[in-house]
Each structure stands twice: as C-alpha cells, then as structure tokens.
Design a protein around this nucleic acid. Structure first.
Lengths: 205, 205
DNA sequence: TCATTAATGTAGCGCGCACTCCATTATTGG
DNA sequence: CCAATAATGGAGTGCGCGCTACATTAATGA
C-alpha cells in the first residue's frame, strides 16, 4: 500500500504553478508552451500532466488563487466609513501592482477570456464583485456627503475598476514606482468622486 | 505584357485586412488562424499570401493604419486653448470607442506587444506621442490656471492615456454606450486635472 | 523485506498550424 | 488575337504544439 503525501504534493504543485505563471506572463496564454513550463519548473512533461489535466487547468488554477484572494478580501472590509473602506478596496485591487508577473498575467487573462466563456465568467465574476463593492461604497459616500452626488454609482464603479486594471497593464513601464503610482491612482479616484465645491473650469462637455 | 492594377489591388487588400481585423478581434493574435481569415475574406490561402508576406505583417498593417491616424490627428490639433485642445485629444484617442472590433484588437495588440519587441516599439511610439501631447497641454493648462498646479504632467499624461486604453477594453461590456461613457471619461480627466478650490475631503493618502 | 502504487522522465504521436507549390484563370499591352 | 504575367484557389508539407504511453524509480504500509 501507498498513500499520497499531500504536503509534498502541494509543494510540487505550487512550484510548477509558480513557474507556469512566469511563462504565461512572459509569453501570453497561447505563447506559453508546456515544454517551456516544464523546463522552467525543472520537471518532465509526464510530471506536469500528472499534476494538471491540461494547460488550461493550470492557468485557471493560477488566476483562481488571485481571484479568491480579492473576493475574500472584499468581504472582510469594514464599511462603516465609506471613504476609508473605498481606500481599502483600492488597496486590495492594487495589491499586486508590484508583482513583476502581474502585467503579463493580466494580458494573458484578457487574451483567454475573449474566447473561453467559462473562464471569462470567473474573471467577470471577480470584476462584478469588485464593482458591486465600489458602487455600494459610492452610494454610502454620497449619503454622507463625502462624494459628489451627481455621479452614477454603477458607472463610476465600472470606471474605477477599469482604471485599476489599466494600472496593472502599465505597471511594467519604465519609471513605474508602485507606491507613487498607487497614490496617484487614489488621487484620480478621489478627485473623480470627491465633492466638487464648484462646477469648476474643467473640460467642456 | 501586363501591369498591376493598383486600384483593384488596394481594394482587395483592404477587404482581406478588414476580414482579418474581425478575426484577430474575435480570437486574438495567436487564436486567429490564417484559414479562418481566408474563409472570412472569401479567398484562398494562395491569395492571402500573395497580398501579405505572413500573418504578422497583416496584423502590423491593421494597427499601422490606426496608429498613423492618431499620430497624424495629434499634429493637426490647435493648441491655443489647452483645455479645448485636450478635449480634442481625448476625442481622438476615443474615436474608435464604438468600433466593435476595437476591444478585441486592443487585446490582441497587448498580446503581441509582450513578445514582439519590434511591434511593441511601434505601439509604444504611438502611446508616447499621445503622452507627450497630453503632457504638453497639461503644462499649458497649468500655466493658464485652468488645471491644478500640483499635478506632475508626465505622470498625469501616462494615466490619462492608460485610462483611455482601459475604456477600449471595456467598450464591449453590456450597457456600454459610447457617447455616455466618452462623456464620463472626460469627466474623470477633467476632475483629475481640474483646479481644486480646496484640498477637498477626498481619500486619505 | 516486499508488494503496491504514487511520482517521474522520455520518447513519440496525432493534429492543427502557418505557409508553399503549382496548375489554372483573368487581365493587361501590343 | 496573342503572348505575358498578375491573380487566384486548393492541395499539400513540414513543424511545433499539447498531450500520452510507458518504463523506471521512489516511497509507503504491512
């Protein structure tokens, strides 16, 4: 008789996943070959497919980790102060801004989501939950007078989430400093939602 | 003797390119097969490769059209009034927001740019020129007092371009109305750059 | 120690891909 | 009308891919 050692199994699995994430980030979903992942992870293809059914499953596992982290984090936020809570949500959504594989993975996710409906559903679900959380906080903030009342919460939420996603895509630009740009992103959101004392000069509509 | 008919040649070429753009948008760069492009364009593979050296060249041609349109448009903008000029730049950058192939092409461009340095260079060049234009207008606007002075023009320009790009990626979301969201994008930029009379409640930094 | 089976590497397979070859057709100038 | 050759379609090709078959090794329980 022989049983699986779940500890060793999990370690090996995580190592492969980590290598795979790097390759996916560098080459995109289609561009990442299983051979390259094997080489990076230092295993044979037999081992790779002993741990994962196929390439798609591997990618699913990689992004699922990230998505559950975000959604779980959203649940845990204290919503008594909407301004502070929104700040925390932004922190969550930009948590992996400094991660070197983040921009590549974001691009790969966009790539796969456009033609894999099931995968798209999971990604959209995460974006949806983030949007809902932001929209609710915008409503609260408008109620307390912290945010300008003339903003549609759902529309604003969509844009705010889109902007954080945009941040991931440019986070490997030269001169991109995580802390600085995260602060700038907060400024953008704050000015977008913030109570404007006057209509301001702004841009003509 | 027989000479090429440049007119017919151009028409056919454009038709193939149009079909290719649809397929690239639907399936991504790697996912788009030359067979699918042939079928969509209603031509044989011999014809396809009679007009284009390879798949990559086709994609280059598609995006080159768009890029030159933007860069040429940027040159032509009247910069006397920075606020109005910036508005026009935003209009240029969001000109194809309603184009159904735009989000897919944007995704495909991101995909290819991550592993094709030469292609990346042309895309970056367009972004760079847009950034430079925006940054210059921010400087002008700050000089005239239209924009808040405490914004780094280069950083702001990067984010503004990134936000317009983000708009393209979400422009096929359900409920996305081009005119409405373009106006919203302008509101975001206006509030971001706009002179803030007071520091405002905003989000804590 | 031994039987059992999980874990692993490797050779290779089938398939779908970008692209080519070539015979045929259409279109031009003379 | 007649070359000459551009234009075209489609069969075909080589190759790189995801994935599998399988032999071998290592780890476990009895």
């Amino acid at each position: 008789m022989r049983t699986v050692n779940p500890e060793k199994h999990a370690v090996r699995r995580a190592a492969i996943l980590s290598a795979a994430a790097e390759v996916f980030a560098e080459r995109g979903y289609d561009g990442a070959t299983t051979a390259a992942i094997c080489k990076r992870a230092g295993v044979g293809s037999g081992t790779l497919f002993h741990y994962f059914a196929d390439k798609r499953t591997m990618f699913l596992a990689i992004v699922a980790d990230d998505l559950t982290t975000v959604t779980a984090g959203l649940e845990r936020i204290d919503r008594t102060d909407p301004v502070r809570a929104l700040d925390e949500v932004l922190g969550l959504l930009t948590a992996d801004l400094g991660d070197p594989v983040a921009p590549g993975l974001a691009a790969a996710m966009i790539q796969l989501a456009r033609r894999d409906p099931e995968f798209a559903a999971t990604v959209i679900a995460k974006d949806e939950s983030a949007r809902r959380a932001v929209a609710a906080l915008v409503v609260d903030g408008q109620a307390t007078g912290a945010f300008a009342p003339d903003t549609d919460p759902d529309r604003a939420a969509r844009w705010i989430v889109a902007i954080t996603d945009a941040g991931h895509l440019i986070s490997d630009d030269p001169g991109f400093d995580t802390a600085t740009e995260r602060a700038e992103l907060r400024r953008i959101v704050a000015s977008y939602l913030g109570r404007r004392r006057t209509p301001g000069p702004g841009l003509p509509r």
